Deep mutational scan, measured.
Amino acid sequence: CHSECLGNCSQPDDPTKCVACRNFYLDGRCVETCPPPYYHFQDWRCVNFSFCQDLHHKCKNSRRQGCHQYVIHNNKCIPECPSGYTMNSSNLLCTPCLGPCPKVCHLLEGEKTIDSVTSAQELRGCTVINGSLIINIRGGNNLAAELEANLGLIEEISGYLKIRRSYALVSLSFFRKLRLIRGETLEIGNYSFYALDNQNLRQLWDWSKHNLTITQGKLFFHYNPKLCLSEIHKMEEVSGTKGRQERNDIALKTNGDQASCENELLKFSYIRTSFDKILLRWEPYWPPDFRDLLGFMLFYKEAPYQNVTEFDGQDACGSNSWTVVDIDPPLRSNDPKSQNHPGWLMRGLKPWTQYAIFVKTLVTFSDERRTYGAKSDIIYVQTDATNPSVPLDPISVSNSSSQIILKWKPPSDPNGNITHYLVFWERQAEDSELFELDYCLKGLKLPSRTWSPPFESEDSQKHNQSEYEDSAGECCSCPKTDSQILKELEESSFRKTFEDYLHNVVFVPRKT
């Protein structure tokens, strides 16, 4: 048989008469490798580009789960590009990614509803959504962080984005990388972005840091009482949809009607710091009717980097990364020049730590249904340095008659930039024990000054392991946590139920 035959053949030295091919099969003959313009397919066939392209389009058009959109890589027609490569849609070739590779997620039936953290986790790592997304989240724990972890990498949506009755959302900033909504599939009414009845939605994105392009379709905003109209108009300008909307697409009466839409800028007039305090004062603000001013709200939190936005980490279910302080308005003076500047002394802060701070007014709604208010920009203030805590785990070892090696770990709280350490030492008198000992005694162990690591005695271990207080009263049991108490109650309830079950099964009433 021919060298490319495997198993047997019907005619000697003829690659077209093989029972099976050793390498690849091409047009009725066995070959060692697939010549151009053919590609290896499933490690035994040679196919042309049209064959591989037909497989790709067949799966793409069917949208069946589990099928493969075949691509070409290293002269092979394979189910998908290997790690580190992405497909070129024009020629199906796998090309190296520039940075992290995109991950295209194809949605069944063309859309997916995100109504819980669990459903959001199914899209973790996706960068391109081939379909439409509907966000409908009523509640949950730590929602802002969970949504950002699972949806934060999405850069492109081919269909539309719909935010509907998501009472738990305060902001859409968890879509931190969303840059493009194509609108290839539109919501009824030709809408590519749809926001309806979101009672706590206050911000779409921080438009000073976020760009969003909507290729096709219109915007729809109705019944978002805490979303200011200025935020919607800003989205029109940034996304390129200005002029597409009709009169009733953006409701003037049901958007922002319960919001404090600040239209003035508060400026800080005085800032002073110490290692654990920050004193702030800002310019006074009074609405047209000074009785509408209820006070100020001061927001602050630790910020290692200057990239904080107002609604980071917030949701309507209680999660809030900001510390909020309510401040009463100052006494009002008739003389504008003698107006008191409101302020606040922030206490209990960490030394040498940068804080993000902003302040906003708290006002009631005027009778004319106009909203007044003022808010400052987010500023960054760093507390002063102070003395560091003591170095940890000092170790001293003498390696000769004239040297001592000293080692330690950095302090747990540096409280500033540590530039150097101060080492103090003092000579001590020799131990009298060394002169009084009889060095001729056998088995004498000389006193040693070398360091030995501390260890816990058996008594201390027994005390720590004991669940009861000892007789001397030195140790006591740790208080039980809520989960331990709940577990004990469940076990007790189970024992009672099981005992009742045994009584009912074992003891049967005697027939009379």
Rank of each mutant, 00 (worst) to 15 (best):
His106Arg: 04
Leu107Gln: 06
Leu108Trp: 15
Leu108Asn: 15
Leu108Ala: 13
Glu109Ser: 14
Glu109Ile: 11
Gly110Cys: 10
Thr113Lys: 12
Ile114Glu: 00
Asp115Glu: 00
Asp115Ser: 07
Asp115Gly: 00
Ser116Asp: 14
Ala120Thr: 12
Gln121Asn: 08
Glu122Leu: 14
Leu123Val: 12
Arg124Tyr: 01
Arg124His: 15
Gly125Val: 10
Thr127Leu: 07
Thr127Cys: 04
Val128Leu: 03
Asn130Lys: 04
Ser132Val: 03
Ser132Asp: 06
Leu133Lys: 02
Ile134Glu: 14
Ile135Glu: 00
Asn136Leu: 09
Ile137Gly: 11
Arg138Val: 13
Gly139Glu: 15
Gly139Gln: 15
Gly139Ser: 15
Gly140Met: 02
Gly140Ala: 15
Gly140Thr: 04
Asn142Cys: 02
Asn142Trp: 04
Ala144Ser: 14
Ala144Pro: 08
Ala145Trp: 03
Ala145Leu: 13
Glu146Leu: 02
Leu147Lys: 00
Glu148Gln: 11
Ala149Cys: 14
Ala149Leu: 07
Asn150Tyr: 12
Asn150Ala: 09
Asn150His: 12
Leu151Thr: 05
Leu151Ser: 01
Gly152Ala: 01
Leu153Ala: 13
Leu153Val: 12
Glu155Val: 15
Glu156Asp: 06
Ile157Arg: 00
Ser158Cys: 13
Ser158Trp: 12
Gly159Ser: 06
Tyr160Trp: 03
Lys162Ser: 10
Ile163Phe: 11
Ile163Cys: 09
Arg164Val: 02
Ser166Leu: 09
Ala168Lys: 00
Val170Leu: 07
Val170Tyr: 13
Ser171Met: 05
Ser171Leu: 02
Ser173Ile: 07
Ser173Met: 10
Phe175His: 01
Phe175Met: 10
Arg176Ala: 05
Arg176Tyr: 09
Arg176Lys: 14
Lys177Val: 08
Leu178Pro: 00
Arg179Asp: 03
Arg179Phe: 09
Arg179Ala: 11
Leu180Ile: 15
Ile181His: 00
Thr185Pro: 09
Thr185His: 15
Glu187Ile: 11
Ile188Ser: 06
Gly189Ser: 05
Gly189Phe: 12
Tyr191Ser: 10
Tyr191Val: 04
Phe193Glu: 00
Phe193Tyr: 03
Tyr194Glu: 13
Ala195Glu: 00
Ala195Lys: 00
Ala195Gly: 12
Leu196Phe: 03
Asn198Met: 08
Gln199Arg: 14
Gln199Trp: 07
Leu201Trp: 06
Arg202Pro: 01
Gln203Asp: 07
Trp205Leu: 05
Asp206Met: 08
Asp206Pro: 11
Asp206Gly: 05
Asp206Gln: 05
Trp207Thr: 08
Ser208Ile: 05
Ser208Leu: 14
Lys209Tyr: 08
His210Trp: 08
Thr213Met: 09
Thr213Leu: 06
Thr213Gly: 08
Ile214Asn: 03
Ile214Pro: 00
Ile214Asp: 01
Thr215Cys: 11
Thr215Leu: 05
Gln216Phe: 14
Gln216Asn: 03
Gly217Glu: 01
Phe220Asp: 10
Phe221Gly: 03
Tyr223Ser: 10
Pro225Val: 09
Pro225Gly: 15
Leu227Trp: 00
Cys228Gln: 10
Leu229Val: 15
Leu229Ser: 09
Ser230Lys: 14
Glu231Lys: 03
Met235Val: 04
Met235Arg: 00
Ser239Ala: 10
Ser239Gln: 06
Ser239Glu: 02
Ser239Gly: 15
Ser239Lys: 08
Ser239Pro: 02
Ser239Phe: 03
Gly240Pro: 02
Thr241Ala: 13
Thr241Lys: 13
Gly243Gln: 13
Gly243Phe: 07
Arg244Asp: 09
Arg244Lys: 15
Gln245Phe: 05
Glu246Ser: 05
Ile250Glu: 06
Ile250Asn: 14
Ala251Thr: 13
Leu252Val: 13
Leu252Ala: 08
Lys253Phe: 12
Lys253Tyr: 11
Thr254Asp: 02
Asn255Leu: 06
Gly256Ser: 11
Gly256Met: 07
Ala259Trp: 08
Ala259Met: 06
Ala259Asn: 02
Ser260Arg: 08
Ser260Thr: 10
Cys261Asp: 06
Glu262Met: 04
Asn263Thr: 07
Glu264Gly: 05
Leu265Met: 11
Ser269Val: 09
Ser269Met: 08
Thr273Lys: 14
Glu283Trp: 02
Glu283Val: 13
Pro284Ser: 05
Trp286Thr: 08
Pro288Asn: 10
Phe290Asn: 15
Arg291Tyr: 15
Asp292His: 15
Leu293Pro: 05
Leu293Phe: 08
Leu293Val: 05
Leu293His: 06
Leu294Ser: 07
Gly295Pro: 08
Gly295Phe: 15
Gly295Ala: 15
Gly295Arg: 02
Phe296Cys: 04
Leu298Gln: 00
Leu298Glu: 00
Phe299Met: 13
Glu302Lys: 09
Glu302Ser: 12
Ala303Ser: 10
Pro304Arg: 13
Tyr305Arg: 07
Gln306Leu: 11
Gln306Ser: 14
Gln306Met: 00
Asn307Ile: 15
Thr309Phe: 04
Phe311Tyr: 15
Asp312Leu: 06
Gly313Pro: 06
Asp315Arg: 04
Asp315Lys: 15
Ala316Thr: 15
Cys317Ile: 15
Asn320Arg: 14
Ser321Leu: 13
Ser321Val: 10
Thr323Asn: 13
Val324Leu: 08
Val324Pro: 04
Val324Glu: 15
Val324Trp: 10
Val324Lys: 01
Ile327His: 01
Asp328Ala: 11
Pro329Gln: 12
Pro329Ile: 07
Pro330Met: 05
Leu331Pro: 03
Arg332Gln: 04
Arg332Pro: 07
Asp335Trp: 13
Asp335Thr: 14
Asp335Leu: 05
Asp335Tyr: 14
Pro336His: 06
Pro336Ser: 07
Lys337Ser: 13
Lys337Pro: 14
Ser338Met: 11
Gln339Gly: 14
Gln339Phe: 12
Asn340His: 08
Asn340Trp: 12
Asn340Gln: 12
His341Gly: 15
Gly343Lys: 11
Gly343Glu: 00
Trp344Glu: 10
Leu345Tyr: 15
Leu345Met: 07
Met346Tyr: 01
Met346Ile: 06
Gly348Tyr: 01
Pro351Gly: 08
Pro351Cys: 07
Pro351Tyr: 10
Pro351Ala: 12
Trp352His: 10
Trp352Pro: 00
Thr353Met: 03
Thr353Trp: 04
Gln354Lys: 06
Tyr355Phe: 12
Tyr355Leu: 01
Phe358Gly: 15
Phe358Tyr: 08
Phe358Ile: 09
Val359Leu: 08
Lys360Phe: 02
Thr361Gly: 13
Thr361Ala: 12
Leu362Pro: 05
Val363Glu: 06
Glu368Ala: 08
Glu368Arg: 15
Arg369Asp: 03
Arg369Cys: 12
Arg369His: 06
Gly373Phe: 02
Ala374Gly: 13
Ile378Arg: 03
Ile379Asn: 04
Ile379Pro: 00
Tyr380Met: 05
Val381Gln: 14
Val381Thr: 03
Val381Pro: 09
Gln382Asp: 05
Thr383Arg: 00
Asp384Pro: 11
Asp384Leu: 06
Ala385Met: 09
Pro388His: 01
Pro388Phe: 01
Val390Asp: 06
Asp393His: 06
Pro394Lys: 11
Ile395Ala: 13
Ile395Arg: 15
Val397Arg: 11
Ser398Met: 01
Ser401Glu: 10
Ser401Asp: 05
Ser401Arg: 06
Ser402Tyr: 15
Ser402Met: 08
Ser402Ala: 15
Gln403Ile: 02
Ile404Tyr: 01
Ile404Leu: 01
Ile405Ser: 14
Lys407Trp: 06
Pro411Phe: 02
Pro411Leu: 01
